[in-house]
Amino acid sequence: MRRLRLLDISLASVTTLVYLALYLPILLVFVLSFFSMRRGRVNWETFSLGWYAKLFDNEALGDALRNSLLVGGTAVAAAAVFATVAALHVNARPSSRSARILEYVIFLPFLLPPIITGLSLLIYFRETGIPRGIATIIVGHAVFVLAIIYRIVLTRLNVLSRSLVEAAHDLGASKFQTFRYIVLPNLRMPLLTAGILAFALSFDETMITLFLTGTDATLPVRLYAMMRVGFTPEINALITLILGFSIVLTVAVAFAWRRNAGLENNSATRI
């Protein structure tokens, strides 16, 4: 039995190490956004919000934030429309060749290394003579998050009771009316969940964006430029704010997911 105890202890130590490795670096950045450091030690007497104040004077960062929100909002909205059309298409004829090819193709930008998605679009935009800028970044992000929205919407469509749709048809609803009054209301929660998740992904996306950015940078790209130049303490403050926003989004996704799962269980019992 002693051998097993030893095994338990080593498993527990590895797990502790893994969680420390995941959270300590982030925690350090958080602490350093308020305190300064001397000789490898945090000096606890130096609390200040100075770096945060300095952030608000930085106009480039404000622009970058605005760009990020614009890109995220537009890309997610566009991707949501096409992901829904794609999911309806596949759901209507799941075993057709068109559906099977679509399933593969739609996941490519998400599964391939981001460097490849980014540079495919870069080359494409160059060949079509479209200058790099906000519009090209929006396309890149929309293509990137398409798969995740598609997957979530399709999952919901596949459990949606067919009798609901048939009843609508029998009662004389047109295809559009069926979609508008029966299918779409059922897609509200999955679209919200997928939308928040996709927005979070877009907000953090860096590698594809680096290929597609012109003079207008998104927040991660601006951050990357600041990091490359060297160490400026205000980066810590900025990172803390961005992480705060990410955590809010994560909580929102978790809540939406829960409600979504709840609805799915309900409709499953209804069938």
Binding site: I26, V29, T250
Partner: peptide, 22 residues
């Protein structure tokens, strides 16, 4: 499990940058 999933939604370059401090 949740504590493991949270870092997945954190910005990739932020996590890399944080490792510099370590």
């Amino acid at each position: 499990v949740i504590a493991l999933a949270i870092p997945l939604l954190m910005s990739y370059i932020i996590k890399i940058y944080a490792m510099r401090g370590v």
